[in-house]
Design a protein around this nucleic acid. Structure first.
Length: 248
DNA sequence: AATAAAGCCAACCGCGGTTCG
DNA sequence: TCGAACCGCGGTTGGCTTTAT
């Protein structure tokens, strides 16, 4: 964007910055009462206030507006914030519109303070990554173990079926020997038949551990998403994570 | 009691969309 | 149609207050 009048004014030191004084608040309030909201850049011209239009708007919207609700965020409001944030993401102004008297800045600050986990330090990140890898390995071992049990179960059932079939054959042979001379090269049941019988008997069960491995969220390209999943991982263990390292 | 760390929040910044001449 | 001005939004910073050691 090309440098506008506001930017050049700032460079020349024309605009005041920092905390607002009571006098400035009064001037701005009187301006809005007379002129209404909007045309923020004309505030300085009409009132003599050495504040940029941007700064005036922010001060009015976040602090001076008469319909603002003072005091702490209530439990109900917190619930609304959490629900809307889950649906809308960081659309603070949209969330604020559903909470009369609360500003987007207020909600943003509240959410960041209470719910947004800070990005951990380098050392903590290394520890978390190690923890993440260990959990992946553990899940993989669980999957292999479950797979092994399933194979054992299948082998046992197969052997049982073969044994049953063998006994039936022997009974048939004995009955036929009683009725007629013995025949050679009797057909033998195949393994495939066993598998079919197992499946029709409802013995095929997808391994939960396997699906757990397959469903394991992979680290996203987005680093924030990765850290979110890492924090969930830690929270799931002891829920005692936290502490603001000072960097978002 | 002193001080470092954490919490909190007002205000600023940069960017993108809209309006207007 | 285009560029400047305006406006609003989300992210970030700085400083004051509170809490922990």
């Amino acid at each position: 964007m090309a440098m506008d009048a506001m930017s050049s004014a700032v460079l020349q030191g024309a605009w005041r910055k920092g905390p607002w004084t009571a006098l400035e608040d009064r001037l701005l309030t009187e301006y809005v009462q007379q002129q209404g909201e909007g045309s923020w850049n004309s505030v300085a011209k009409l009132t003599g206030l050495r504040r940029s239009g941007k700064s005036c708007r922010l001060r009015w919207v976040n602090y001076l507006r008469p319909d603002l609700k003072r005091g702490k965020i209530t439990a109900d409001e917190e619930t609304v914030i959490l629900q809307l944030h889950a649906m809308l993401g960081n659309r603070w102004s949209a969330i604020a519109r559903c909470l009369p008297g609360r500003t987007d800045n207020e909600i943003k600050n509240y959410w960041r303070t209470h719910f947004k986990k800070a990005r951990p330090s380098r050392r903590a990140r290394a520890q978390l990554l190690h923890q993440y890898q260990l959990q992946q390995q553990q899940q993989h071992r669980q999957y292999l173990h479950a797979l092994h049990l399933l194979q054992q179960q299948q082998q046992e059932m197969q052997m049982q079926l073969q044994e049953n079939h063998h006994q039936q054959q022997q009974q048939q042979v004995m009955m036929m020997q009683q009725q007629s001379p013995p025949e050679e090269d009797q057909a033998v049941i195949t393994t495939g038949d066993n598998m079919n019988s197992m499946e029709t008997a409802g013995c095929y069960c997808p391994c939960p551990a396997a699906s757990a491995v397959l469903d394991l969220p992979l680290p996203a390209d987005d680093e924030d998403a990765l850290w979110d999943s890492l924090w969930r991982l830690v929270d799931g263990e002891d829920g005692s994570s936290g502490g603001d390292s000072g960097e978002y």
